[in-house]
């Protein structure tokens, strides 16, 4: 109806650094899950990925919070204020504890794994699973509790984050296993069985992930004014390249086709391509989600 003559600019609150933080915690949680498949749940065929999984999980989770601290204006102050002046109602408060507990537990779990102590490895692996779920689920929760923004404020957000974490983690493991087997072993033969298992797992998780995205968008398109506008903006507006093309076509649908058809999946080049595309797609998803939630002004 009207034409805005004067209004002030709002500041976007969360930026790319937060996207990278989410991406790295996702990769970490995903690779941790893979590492527990054999020691925690007795799936022996995934054993060659366990040690690699736990080492990457720890390294990535030491790296990830650095991005978080770079985003915060007062990083050093935030390190202790988060514990001393803790507000139990805020999602970030719990993150501070999780970001300490999860790497600690992963390190202990890794030490027992390298010492070949099956019993304690299983024990710490099983403790680690809820922690890994929490450390990544809470990142989705942070966004979901940004209640002002319809795009974030949905109960699906933590679950979407968990599934995208797992798929990107698996893709990363596929790539790492290939590189290790091909270049860093004496025999130079790639372990076909574990790759096949991971590729199938990736396929099923991608299906769930796509289903969740479908649920999210179909509901947004029928919700209130802001929700509809955000959905249109993501599907047909300026974000369409990031969301539709990068995240869903490149990141999910093409990899899904590759890993679901045995003939394509057994071609190592295509499998590498699928894993790479999926990792890029999930990075796009993190950026699109953080940016998309705040790109439209609220008032």
């Amino acid at each position: 109806m009207g034409q805005i003559v004067y209004d002030v600019h709002y500041q976007t609150s969360l930026g790319f650094l937060i996207s990278y933080y989410f991406y790295l915690t996702g990769l970490s949680a995903g690779s941790f899950m893979i590492s527990t498949l054999s020691y925690g749940f007795g799936m022996e065929k995934f054993k060659p990925a366990s040690k690699m999984g736990v080492v990457t999980a720890v390294l990535l989770l030491l790296l990830a919070p650095q991005f978080l601290l770079m985003q915060v204006a007062w990083p050093v102050k935030s390190l202790w204020h988060n514990f001393v002046y803790l507000n139990p109602l805020s999602a970030i408060s719990y993150g501070a504890f999780l970001l300490v507990l999860y790497p600690l537990n992963s390190i202990i779990y890794g030490i027992f794994m390298f010492k070949d102590n099956k019993k304690w490895t299983k024990f710490f692996g099983l403790i680690g699973i809820p922690l890994a779920l929490a450390v990544h689920g809470y990142t989705g929760w942070i966004l979901a509790l940004g209640v002002a923004r319809d795009y974030w404020n949905t109960g699906l957000m933590p679950i979407v984050f968990l599934f995208s974490a797992m798929v990107s983690g698996i893709s990363m493991m596929i790539l790492m296993i290939m590189i290790r087997d091909r270049f860093f072993t004496k025999e130079k033969v790639i372990n076909r069985e574990i790759l096949e298992g991971l590729a199938k797992l990736l396929g099923w998780l991608l299906i769930v992930d796509l289903f969740l995205v479908f649920c999210d968008y179909s509901i947004l398109l029928y919700s209130g004014q802001e929700g509809q506008e955000v959905a249109h903006f993501m599907l047909f507006g300026r974000m369409a390249f990031g969301f539709v093309f990068m995240e869903n076509i490149v990141g999910k649908i093409i990899p899904l086709i590759i890993v679901m058809i045995p003939k394509l999946r057994n071609n190592y080049y295509l499998l590498v391509l699928a894993a790479l595309m999926n990792m890029i797609g999930i990075l796009a998803m993190r950026i699109v989600t953080v940016y998309g939630g705040q790109v439209l002004p609220l008032m």
């Binding site: 709002y10 500041q11 609150s13 969360l14 985003q71 915060v72 204006a73 007062w74 990083p75 102050k77 935030s78 204020h81 988060n82 002046y85 805020s90 970030i92 942070i142 509790l145 940004g146 209640v147 002002a148 923004r149 974030w152 939630g293 705040q294 002004p297 609220l298 008032m299």
Partner: peptide, 26 residues
């Protein structure tokens, strides 16, 4: 003195009336 400049409140306020001070970071 307590604010760490995490900007979480900015994304949660439905009225967009919160800003980060460009010099102070709070």
């Amino acid at each position: 003195h307590l604010c760490v400049g995490c900007r979480y409140c900015m994304s949660a306020c439905p009225y967009e009336v919160r800003y980060i001070h460009p010099q102070k970071g709070i």
